[in-house]
Each structure stands twice: as C-alpha cells, then as structure tokens.
Design a protein around this nucleic acid. Structure first.
Lengths: 253, 253
DNA sequence: TTTCTATTGTCTCAATTTGTTACAATAATA
DNA sequence: TATTATTGTAACAAATTGAGACAATAGAAA
C-alpha cells in the first residue's frame, strides 16, 4: 500500500499547504485501516517483471498501492490506481489475497517515508494506524506502458522477479504469493493473452510460460498442446531478418 | 458478516443494559468497515452442507461472520469466531476472496436485524456503515460438531448446498464462490482429509469428491488414482453387517 | 549461385495415464 | 450351501504426453 493514489492525493494537498510542514490528507475521503497493493506483471520478451516504486530520500522500495474511497467499490479503487500509474484502462486484474496480520503494519516505516517528504504526521494520524491490505495482480502489455514516475515522492520502474530489491513491510511476501497464484492460474486463465501483444510467435508464448513457471518446457510438446487447445488463430509469417525459417504469428481468438 | 462474535458481543453488552432499548457495542474494540464471513463446510456421508444461521423474528438467513479486533490478526478473528460457533479448535481454514462492492452493504437489512432484537441503533451507527468482508471457508468433521444456537438472536444449523434458503445481502454469492474455490482446490489441498473422520472407506472418500464436484465418478478409476497418489494408509476392514465384501478403512498419512 | 546454419512446423513411435470392462473374493442372508 | 451386493484388482483399449527425427526455409557465408 501507500503510493499511487496516495502520492497523487498528497500532491493535491501539498499545493495548498505551506513549504515546510505540508498537510496530510484527512480521513474524510478514504476508509481507514483499508488499503490495496498491486503486483503489476509485465513481460519484456525474456523476463517476467513487476513494477516497483522507490520512495524519495529513503532507499525504500514498495509495491504500488493506495486507499479506497468511501464512495467507490474496492475494485474500482484498484483500477483507478492502475490507470494513474500506467495510463492503461481495461487492465486484466485479479484479486488474490488479503493480508491482515497485525505485524504487517509498521508505523515507523510509514513515518520515515512521510518525514523524508516533509510531512509531519501526528502520532495518532490515520496513516500510521494498522492497515489490512487487499492484494491484486495485474497483467499488462509491457510495451504499451510508460510507467509514470511521481515528481513528489517516488519513482516507479520494472524489476525482474528474480532481481527484486528488498521491499518494505510484507511486500516481498505479497509478491511471492502473487507469483504462486499466477502459476496456478497459468493454465486456466488468460495469462498469455494479457502479457503479450495481440500478435505473437509460438516461441514468445512459450517464453511467457517458462518465465511464469520458472522452468524450461519442451518445444514440440508445447506447440502441440497450444494448437490442440483451439484458442489460437494463425496469421502471416514474421520475417525477422534471421537466417532460418520464419515463424507464424498467432493471436488468441 | 454479522453474527457469531457479534451476537456474543451483543449478549455481553445487553446483560449490562436496560430491558427495552439495549446497548450496542461501541467501535472502540473492533475495526470499522471490516468484517469476515465464513462458509463452514461439513459432509454428512451423503451431502455437502454448510452452516447457516437465522436471525430471530426476521426470517433472515446469513453466513456466520464477525468483526476484527484492533488487537488481533485477521485470521485469528476468524478462528475465534469458528471456535465460538463450533467448539472446535484447529479448524482447516482458507481465505478465498474479499468482497468490497458498495452495493453489498445494506443498512436497511442490518437495521431490521438489530431492531427485531430490541436494539435501537442511531442512524450513523458504525454497524450500519459500509463493510468490506474477507471471506473464508472452513472444512470440519460433521460429526464432531454441535453447532451452538445463540439464545439471543439466532439459531444455526446445517443446510445442504443445493437446498440453501435465500441468504441476506451478497451471502449467496459468497457461498457460490466458496464452492468454486473448493472445487479448484479439491486435488491440490487436503479437502478429503478435513471433511472425513480419521478413518474412512474408499467409498466415503469418493462420495466427498462427488459431492464437491457435483458429478459422479467412476469407481475403479477413482480407487486406482487415490491409491496411486501414495497418500493413503490402509488399515483393518470395516464390517458393516452388510451381505457383501467388507471394505478396508484408510487414513491419510 | 550454391552451400551452410539456426529455427520452425510436423510426424512418428515410445511411455505414461486414463477409460472401460471383466472377474474373483467375500460378508451376511436366505 | 447357494445367493446377493459390494469391493479390490487385473486386463486391455483409448487418449495423452515424452522424446527424437526430419524436412522446410530465410537469410548469411562461400
């Protein structure tokens, strides 16, 4: 939690506030104790990556997240946050777990992030309270996104899932669980469809599967299985300028 | 949501309160806007059932649920509620979804339940606010449980999943989702183990599978597959006094 | 132009898993 | 002792998956 919407919200407020002790959002708009975090997956052609943000002046890394308005559905809040972060609408989104341990909330970390950005929260401020966080994963087309660094408090960029920096609080655990659920859903949901451009080669599709599962697959078996599922449409060949047979392009039908 | 802990909590309070307008719990102990609901599965030998409670004087049926204390983990709150309802400790419990739509909260229904029990909540009382609910399913041994009817506001009893009464708010949807997730988890988790007594026949195990999946399975294939999984230990035969070969008893190892 | 190389699409046969039928063993009953 | 319903397992067929082989081919090298 604690980013995306939140930072944008802070930005709005800080414009109205004085320089050296900016004003924090009150809890009139957002539900207290409730947050969401999103694990945003993308595939760069080789590696499975997720979007991670870094809070300014802290060296702290976190998942993009935010809060839920009193007047919006939980899922709409998450979509709003994703739109703000990625510019994309109609993102494939799946809720996978809600994290509600007492130990996951850490006022010290929150305070450090706020103070590094010149906010001076009261001791009892709602942002320093306990939060239960509903976690979602999103699948997006890596090439269509220009992640938006936030001039106020953080930058955001892609990290390969096996080269993640240490994340604050329980965010490492959240990523781990997201990846496990993604693996489980690989066969039954449209994971490949949402991580690839609309037309792709069989090899690219296989690479997505291999990146998610973390293991190599047999080429001929994979191809036979995919074609047998009757979910692919074959298009023209893709001439890549390589000295070998050109692969067909496919799309999901 | 809205039962179990809740009713027990009300009971505690009402003992201190006057007869004709009882006192409602304040929000000092529980986190606002956050609830849990539990779908408690049991197997009676033939049918898959769940525990449903009925609010007194309303004809309203609901899932057992409750609220989360500021000082306890989310999961501990659910376990506490289950213990109070079933008397059982160490229950197999799995979180499966969090329901956060605005439309799921219904102050009229809540008000009706409270007033039918002689509580007079203020219009802005926290119990009438919006709630986001984290849903869990539990698997228990049908025979070990004596569901505890609550003398204050509700009774609780088993209903076959295909003979459920209409449930309040989105509780029907919650049950539907629980059942879908249970089906998905049937192979990979210890569903059979937790719905059966420690020793059981192959036929009983098959009946659990059939009840969860909602379809008949082939006896010989089922038996071969289960034995092949290498998760069962064979024990003595069970003589049921029937005029045919006695089946072996098995347990999970 | 011809040869060479890496990759792709498909085929074949073996190995494994699953579907289906058959049948012997057996616990109580008639 | 024969009968009946159910259980455990074997046997074979059908379907799926594993593994290797091979021809087609797009460009590079000779």
């Amino acid at each position: 939690m604690f980013s995306s919407n939140f930072t944008i919200y802070l930005e709005k407020y800080s414009a109205l506030a004085e320089k050296n002790h900016k004003e924090l959002p009150s809890n009139h708009e957002f539900m207290p104790h409730l947050a969401y975090d999103s694990v945003i997956f993308g595939f760069n052609g080789t590696q499975l990556k997720i979007l991670v943000l870094e809070y300014h002046n802290t060296g702290l890394f976190a998942l993009p997240g935010g809060f839920v308005k009193y007047t919006e559905n939980l899922e709409d809040a998450v979509e709003r946050g994703l739109k703000e972060r990625t510019g994309l609408d109609q993102i494939y989104l799946e809720q996978f777990h809600t994290f509600g341990d007492l130990s996951r909330s850490n006022p010290e970390t929150m305070g450090r992030i706020l103070e590094a950005n010149d906010y001076k929260p009261d001791d009892g401020h709602w942002l320093l309270h306990r939060f239960v966080s509903v976690a979602y994963y999103a699948l997006i087309n890596y090439d269509e996104v220009e992640p938006r660094p936030d001039e106020l408090s953080d930058s955001i960029s892609w990290y390969a899932i096996d080269e993640l920096p240490g994340l604050i609080m329980d965010h490492g655990l959240i990523v781990e669980k997201a990846l496990n659920v993604l693996k489980d859903n690989l066969e039954k949901k449209l994971v490949g469809m949402n991580l690839l451009p609309s037309k792709f080669t069989m090899k690219q599709l296989q690479q997505v599967y291999e990146a998610v599962l973390g293991e190599k697959l047999r080429r001929t078996t994979f191809q036979r299985k995919m074609l047998g599922l009757d979910i692919l449409v074959r298009h023209e060949k893709l001439y890549q300028g390589k000295a070998h047979k050109a692969p067909y392009l496919y799309s999901f039908r």
